[in-house]
Amino acid sequence: MPILVLAEMTDGKLMRDPTARTVAALSPHGDVTVLIADAQTGEAAEMAAAIDGVSQVLEAGSTALAHQLAEPLSMLLARLAGEYDIIAAPATTTAKDVMPRLAALLDVMVVPDVIAISGPDQFSRPVYAGNAIQTVKSRDRIKVLTIRTSGFAAAGTAPAASIRTVAVPDAEGCARWIADHRADSGRPDLTAARVVVSGGRGVGSRDAFAMIEGLADRLGAAVGASRAAVDSGFAPNDCQVGQTGKVVAPDLYIACGISGAIQHLAGMKDSKIIVAINKDEEAPIFQIADYGLVADLFEAVPELQRKL
């Protein structure tokens, strides 16, 4: 079964981790071709060719594809679609922008946030903020999927697959990129980190949030936040973990001053070990925490950082 995977790209660089996890999710079910589409593609195409399970790489280089805008990307994918049974991408904001538009162009449904594949047309995905898992069987000829990468391990490396250049259709030119405003923390990427330290409303202020960042740096961890912490301005938007933010499944998730609303749990409840530090012993977060510490986080977090 021929499968096309849209690689996750940022400014001509391959985001290997989400791409390799998507390849690993799909390669047991067919021949995986990876599409590298951006203004610059050379280095990314070579890196993608060396991912285990990739049988071919398609390289689509054009300034029209810079910044991963939905209109040119979906048009390119629609042109390539005829040769594939499954078209998939890691469930990043780029894919969530592009893949439904592609599906509409092909007159098929999109199956977002796939967490399990139980056959060529049968997929499972979380609904109701992760409070139910739905298994669906697709009746469409071409299946358009996004893969929730936190549930799959990243594929390793293998001898390089072949690379082929593909033509890029002329852009409609209806959307124009103006600027990026990236939050560059120097910490590991939240969705790929092995350890995540998160702060919630209980942290109280932007200044106090530095305590969460201090513990994260001590552990080489990524920093997360609840929606309450983000809305209160304690942490930037792209730190938000939850149904409407990022979904993470690290080995260790430390929730500090987070009550554990449904919306937040949807983004982290598949973590291997969950630690909750909260002074409210009734907080719902304790119901899913493997280790709970009822304590004032302004004492416990610095002590934890000191003793690690």
Binding site: M109, A132, K137, D140, I288, Y291, L293, V294, K307
Partner: peptide, 26 residues
Amino acid sequence: RLEIVMTREPAGRKAGVRVATVDALI
């Protein structure tokens, strides 16, 4: 286009434990 085959509860997590101190947590 998508036939819903089944909707189930997500796998539950096993009950955790409370620790009394930071040392015990570490």
